[in-house]
Design a protein around this nucleic acid. Sequence first.
DNA 1: AATGAATGAGACTTCATTCAT
DNA 2: AATGAATGAAGTCTCATTCAT
Lengths: 201, 201, 201, 201
Amino acid sequence: MENEEKNTKQLILEKGALLLAQQGIEGLSMRKLGALVGVSQAAIYRHFANKEELLRAIIQNGYGRLVSTLRAVLENEYQSPAQKVREAVYAYINFVLESPDLFKAVLLQDSGPARQQVHSVQKDIGKNRETFAMFIKVLSEGMAKGDFAPADPELSSLAIWASLTGLASRIAVERSIAPDLRNQLIERFCAIILGGLQYKY
Amino acid sequence: MENEEKNTKQLILEKGALLLAQQGIEGLSMRKLGALVGVSQAAIYRHFANKEELLRAIIQNGYGRLVSTLRAVLENEYQSPAQKVREAVYAYINFVLESPDLFKAVLLQDSGPARQQVHSVQKDIGKNRETFAMFIKVLSEGMAKGDFAPADPELSSLAIWASLTGLASRIAVERSIAPDLRNQLIERFCAIILGGLQYKY
Amino acid sequence: MENEEKNTKQLILEKGALLLAQQGIEGLSMRKLGALVGVSQAAIYRHFANKEELLRAIIQNGYGRLVSTLRAVLENEYQSPAQKVREAVYAYINFVLESPDLFKAVLLQDSGPARQQVHSVQKDIGKNRETFAMFIKVLSEGMAKGDFAPADPELSSLAIWASLTGLASRIAVERSIAPDLRNQLIERFCAIILGGLQYKY
Amino acid sequence: MENEEKNTKQLILEKGALLLAQQGIEGLSMRKLGALVGVSQAAIYRHFANKEELLRAIIQNGYGRLVSTLRAVLENEYQSPAQKVREAVYAYINFVLESPDLFKAVLLQDSGPARQQVHSVQKDIGKNRETFAMFIKVLSEGMAKGDFAPADPELSSLAIWASLTGLASRIAVERSIAPDLRNQLIERFCAIILGGLQYKY
DNA sequence: AATGAATGAGACTTCATTCAT
DNA sequence: AATGAATGAAGTCTCATTCAT
């Protein structure tokens, strides 16, 4: 029984992510989603109370991957703080390249009809407390070890995370960019960030 | 007399920017805009052929300010490259603080049904060739003078600009942040970026 | 139970035909139709994807009668070709008298914005291959039997069918004509057509 | 002065006929017409009180040609009644081929928004009393001379005229038909009609 | 004679949601 | 757990027409 149900609910989540990825947040309509899943529009309401809840679920569902990847990267004992930062950047960008619209839905939206809806999601996920806390810890660690110049780790985290989001956004928008150039860009970004972290005034 | 009616077209642009600012790109409907301006929906079509054209006009109208501010900052002869970068950051952030959703409309949207419309606008403005070229020049100049470590100035520009966009986005979203904290964040951002530019491996 | 609600879809078709009949092809608006059926405009889209599909359905629905009547007439074994022609004329005219605007919608419209939609329908129905083929056969038969003078049966069919359409159109337009006069006109039409078919140069 | 005015008014009529021809009766909007003439929409109202009056004027303007051609044909002293009928058919068809939508607007319409508007025009023009009277006279003449079998000439006229309209309609609709085939069709039509007129029971 | 601005009505269509079955 | 039917609101846009200038 659980299997049966899971099928539909999970299918909705998957196809929903797909719709979101292909058509953006406006393209995710109950009608289309129902058709894509092969089920009536009304059926979706059996599984999710709202479009809001649906959206939240889709996002949480898809976002989990990034979070666990990031966690793995940031908690890897065998890497230096600088390496962790660099790997986190790559993990983040890879996620964005795989699901650009999921990314956009979560991190960049707070306009559109789902604005206020997503807002709460953003608070839950966008800030991503847990991951963020880990990132702060990595920076603190680096500063303690002398790898990074001393500074407020939370502020640094915020600044870098925001920068990373900006980079990701640009890359998500310009999907047609040559992979080569893209890698150079990412590399330069890492260089600047890590340079900035190490730089002493 | 001219003052009384305030030109309607300009009014549409202003109220349109306001709607865009308050409700995002989808919230900008002809219906609402008409009501806000105090005019019938159809009247808007006297002044703008399309929603697309309207959007383009609103954005260009509002975006002009930033471009000219940036130009002034980046072409100021009496400042060092590093100072120019810092001032550009502040100019950008100030613009975002004044018109957060104008910013969001232009820079963060890009796919979906209504978004292909914006796409061309983005190409015109988002890339913002002219300003961007000036930014590249500032970095080149800094590298030539030895203020910045040598690196590809275009790549560096792209990376920094994307980062700046990310910071701006975060600030735009979290408008309720305390000004104090905000300034610290901006300052830390500048420090990291400028540090990164100066850092030699 | 089924009777009570009367199927809505069928109701839409019927009221749609009525609207079409009373107000022509442009008068058939979703708004009006919804109101006439006693249902919201949106409800119509539950049953027909488009105005185009709706139109097609209405026409096919109403047109079926004529086709089957014509078929019965033209395949009646016990009548001479001339009689078949005469009966077909009367059947056609009777249909037009019963549903004058259904007829008009199908046969007289064909260009303009809304009309390209009808175009395909016209190809399906207007040409009415099947019925038309039967008509050709009747003429061939008559020529073979010597009832009609030898001539290209397809060309003759086309000419007569077009003429019949013209007559029908006139009658549809001038609905107020006295039945007596109308019958005389139809009779004279048959006489000319049949005379023309029998006439040898 | 008259010249100046004539220019605009006549231009409206001409471009109006063109619009009517290209886009059908729905395509003839004041907006488009104004643009086509190179004048504001409102300007049209300086010359014509209504869309109705405009339409009437366009039709009358364009229809004049047919009427005078038909008059010339039907009053040609040097031709037999049969020849006159044949020539009238060709004149009519040629007119339709040149201005198919003018034809449609005048003779086939009585649906659409302009329905009731055109109706009155139809009474004036569609029946085309004068021309029609001449046609009756030709038939009478033919019957008197023994070229045609005796019959009610008015009834015959009506039947033939309606048939001709039907033929014209078919030809107007299927504009892509090969000229060769078209001519054969017209010829066969003439043969049937003339045969029917001459046939004695 | 002409224009620019505006209007009110109406066009088709899509949306999220509800409800009886 | 699911469906088919329906709804009300909203979306963009076009139309014929009016009016002050």
